[in-house]
């Protein structure tokens, strides 16, 4: 019961933060609020028993992501211009999508149900076999590093590709700027 109350309070705070991000026009405030959003979601991950996800989210979502966003607004403009179009059509799109998703959750098992299909399939198998197979106390580490190690390898490949992409996109930024200044002079 107390868990549910905590979750609902955290989720309400998350919704309020998200609404503030919608309203805010100064991008610095938007970036800071997105950091707040990440930290609140990390708290929610702790109450959902996903402690590994929580500290990854706190480090990556509130840390690295905020730094990257701040760097971007430093290189671009810090203020958002108000949109010329009305918010009516986006609102309808969001409403219809939301209604479809709510309709989809009606068939889902209740939150925390120990007999839900997700809990009686392979999940218990990993929990039962980790002590003998891997002998690492943290099951998430055991699955991430051993049972599903290829996933982690693929993830590393994705990060590597993204890193190269960012470097290619941003390399020569200063050189092009200097060229531009010479042209203007």
């Amino acid at each position: 019961m107390i868990d549910t109350v905590t979750n609902i309070i955290l989720l309400t705070m998350l919704v309020l933060t998200a609404l503030a991000i919608v309203r805010m026009e100064r991008l610095f405030a938007v970036v800071m609020l997105s950091g707040v959003f990440s930290l609140l979601s990390a708290l929610l991950f702790v109450t959902l028993d996903a402690v590994d996800v929580a500290f990854t989210e706190a480090a990556v979502g509130a840390g690295i992501s905020t730094v990257l966003l701040l760097g971007t607004i430093a290189l671009t403009k810090p203020v958002e211009r108000r949109a010329r179009h009305t918010a009516f059509i986006p609102f309808i799109v969001v409403l219809v999508t939301g209604a479809a998703l709510v309709y989809g959750t009606l068939d889902m098992p209740a939150f925390g149900d120990p007999n839900a299909p997700a809990q009686i399939h392979v999940g218990p198998e990993y929990l039962a076999r980790t002590p003998d197979d891997i002998d690492v106390p943290n099951v998430v580490t055991a699955i991430l590093g051993s049972y599903r190690g290829y996933d982690t390898l693929g993830e590393t490949a994705v990060v590597f590709t993204a890193g190269i992409g960012v470097l290619l996109l941003l390399s020569g930024l200063r050189r092009r700027r200097e060229d531009e200044e010479e042209d203007q002079a």
Binding site: G61, S65, Y126, V139, R148
Partner: peptide, 22 residues
């Protein structure tokens, strides 16, 4: 709690930051 979603989401968070930075 089921550790399997945690593992998948850990991977997804890191992939998410990669796409964000791009």
């Amino acid at each position: 709690s089921n550790p399997l979603p945690h593992v998948l989401i850990l991977t997804a968070i890191v992939v998410g930051i990669a796409t964000t930075s791009l």
